[in-house]
Design a protein around this nucleic acid. Structure first.
Lengths: 205, 205
DNA sequence: CAAGAATTGTTCAGAAATTCACAATTAAGA
DNA sequence: TCTTAATTGTGAATTTCTGAACAATTCTTG
């Protein structure tokens, strides 16, 4: 199958989210125009994206919701993604308790912190370990990605730990860039920047 | 001044973040190459972005950290951005307690919930109001953007409330698309999708 | 003061992403 | 059955974004 760009992949995840909602609402078919309107894309964009994954639609009809969802999921999220969390503070705790993951093939398998009061506890079913145990846990447990939800000062050290334990993907919520070797993927989510960029877009539009 | 693309604006916010860190570490000048390496961009990209905001650098020297930061901030974030939060659950509480905002010209001025046990309290200095009071609060208080951190089922109603109260920007953490009139900006942050998209990028690279 | 080295700002070319536009297809209805 | 209307899939056109390259500039050093 042809190479698909990251942008298309991300939009495809939004398509899946919307298709799930439509399924839940009882819809059975949907057109590119309807999908586009719901998500704020163009209909041409939707069709071109979907065409990456095969010829799923029928002219004059549209796409069968269940079938399209299946095709996208087969391509994108075959397995459950196992994630480990680093830093059980305000944000980390909220992530541990976030209820949206289990519907989306994401499983938090371990959390790490340096606070002795937290180590050994279980939050929402996820055990909290000492930071130094990461290598052993990653060896014993299937982990795909690491999530940094620690203070700025600790983020680079944690990134190094994550990389050292062999993981290749990091979601970084800390408000600072971390440097990693080539081949490791980092996604930065800085709440301040997210808010500010929305506001900048508003002002400079 | 020339029109600047949203992508450039977002990167510029990352530049500011990095410049702050450099300032804090005592750096006084920095080259495009250094900035690029820290953030994982190309040096040409950095120079081109910065050139949107004027001729700030000196050949053979680089950019004065403080001066560049000033130039970018003058263009991007002249005023403090005032935000109101909708939904004081796990994620909402973490946002209220997030410590990174005040350094970044973001101020949470109000929170809203439907839970009587939360209404009337103050969390981290931010008062929690009843959802129905939004119009009055927005009239009395300067609010730029609304943040939806409520369950999926409530998100569209909250978006309608936000739009009805006159706000033009929404950050939506709920795992569903909200529909808004033209002219209202929405930024979706779906934690599941963020994690999955990282993983997809890893697999399909 | 002149030569050399480093870095900017900018132009240009190429790549990537988006939109357009329409032939092909299919269901529905006369 | 034949026509009509709707919708897909896609090649071409367009726009946006990125990367390469280099003249212009300015510090440094001898």
């Amino acid at each position: 199958m042809r190479k698909v760009s990251p942008k298309t992949l991300t939009r495809a995840l939004f398509y899946i989210r919307t298709l799930n909602r439509l399924l839940h609402l009882g819809g059975s078919v949907v057109s590119s125009k309807e999908l586009a309107d719901i998500m704020g894309f163009s209909d041409a964009q939707v069709r071109k994206d979907i065409s990456n994954f095969g010829k799923v639609g029928k002219p004059r009809i549209g796409y069968k919701v269940a079938e399209l969802k299946q095709v996208l999921e087969d391509f994108l999220v075959q397995d459950v993604v196992h994630a480990a969390l680093f830093g059980v503070g305000n944000l980390g705790s909220a992530i541990l308790r976030y209820s949206g993951f289990h519907q989306n093939k994401i499983k938090l398998v371990a959390a790490f912190d340096i606070d002795k009061n937290k180590i050994g506890k279980t939050i929402n079913g996820v055990p909290v370990y000492a930071m130094k145990d990461i290598r052993e846990i990653v060896r014993r447990t299937h982990v795909d990605i690491g999530i940094i939800a620690a203070p700025e000062e600790a983020s680079q050290d944690i990134a190094d730990l994550i990389v050292g334990s062999g993981l290749k993907g990091i979601v970084n919520f800390a408000p600072t860039s971390v440097s990693v070797p080539k081949g490791v993927f980092v996604k930065d989510i800085d709440l301040s920047i997210e808010f500010l960029s929305l506001f900048c877009d508003m002002q400079h539009s």
